[in-house]
């Protein structure tokens, strides 16, 4: 009995505050926008009994999803989110892998400190970390001041409010998610394997590509998913660092809801985003399971 309570309380909580809300989103995505409170129709009228439910179901349709395919804004936003997420995941890997590698090769007594230095930014506010780049990347920002002073450029570069600023922001904020899984793979890499490869005539570089990198692949894959998945629905970074031409689906959903007050379309945008996310999430889980089995 007591056992049952231990799981019934959190289970019920999640049912009511996680699963039910998603069912509501799905329902509203099939509704029509209306000038009412709440601003959508039909409303479920349970006092009518069964006929009320039937009327309600009859009025639901896929109109909003058809609308999403006809207005190019939406599929452009989905494609552009996928592109931005893919490019920034790759850039994060380029920056993160050498750091993870260097940490795994660092002196043993340094490693906890290095690890803490990687995790520390994660505890500071995400919003502030994104904001800190606004002062750096602006046309009068510190980076342009430095470049002008060094004589590298003669006119300030426009970086803030472009996709480049978004890439920089994503790499900056998601770097720990890339480094940690790669580091944990490289950390337990058996050094004897590398020595064996070198004894057998491998150069340092080919030993890396033939031994180290393949062995770190589960970490690389995990890191890439950990960056790619949350980036796809990112809102804060594109709205602070991106420009008006930066299209990301999180921003579109936000504006659809807060500016246009079109709740049914906002819900449809959310449902499609979820469907897109399911694929990488399942792949990620498969990767984690495979890794767990390999370790067991």
């Amino acid at each position: 009995m007591r056992r049952a309570i231990v799981y019934l309380i959190p289970f019920t909580w999640l049912l009511v505050l996680f699963l039910v809300p998603f069912l509501i989103v799905f329902k509203i995505s099939l509704s029509d926008v209306a000038l009412a409170r709440p601003p959508y129709t039909p409303q479920l009228d349970l006092s009518q009994g069964l006929s009320g439910i039937l009327d309600f179901v009859r009025e639901l349709d896929f109109e909003n999803f058809i609308f999403l395919t006809t207005d190019s804004l939406y599929w452009k936003a989905y494609l552009s989110s996928l592109k931005i997420a893919a490019v920034s995941t790759f850039l994060t890997l380029l920056v993160g892998y050498p750091m993870a590698y260097a940490m795994a090769r660092a002196r043993e007594d340094w490693r906890p400190t290095l690890l803490m230095l990687i995790i520390l930014p994660f505890w500071t506010s995400f919003l502030i970390r994104v904001y800190s780049w606004m002062g750096i990347l602006g046309t009068e920002g510190y980076l342009n001041q430095l470049l002008l002073w060094l004589g590298i450029v003669s006119t300030p570069l426009q970086i803030l409010n472009t996709n480049w600023a978004v890439y920089i922001g994503i790499v900056y904020t998601y770097l720990p998610f890339m480094i940690l899984p790669i580091y944990s793979q490289l950390d337990r890499l058996d050094g004897a394997l590398l020595e064996a490869a070198e004894d057998l005539g491998c150069s340092r570089a080919s030993a890396f590509w033939l031994v180290t990198f393949p062995l770190s692949r589960p970490g690389v894959i995990a890191g890439c998913f950990l960056v790619f998945i949350p980036t796809l629905g990112e809102f804060v970074i594109p709205s602070l660092l991106g420009g008006s031409s930066t299209l990301m689906i999180g921003k579109v959903l936000w504006e659809e809801f807060f500016s246009n007050r079109d709740w049914p379309v906002a819900s449809a945008v959310a449902v499609v985003l979820l469907i897109i996310l399911i694929i990488p999430i399942i792949l990620f889980q498969k990767n984690q399971q495979k890794q767990a089995e390999a370790e067991a």
Partner: peptide, 27 residues
């Protein structure tokens, strides 16, 4: 279902979670 609901919020975009909860509170 239970373990799915534990892990799903970790990968759910904030905009979707926020929207879903708001629609629940309103309804």
């Amino acid at each position: 279902l239970f373990s799915g609901m534990i892990y799903a919020p970790l990968v759910m975009p904030d905009v979707i979670t926020g929207l879903a909860l708001l629609l629940l509170f309103i309804s």
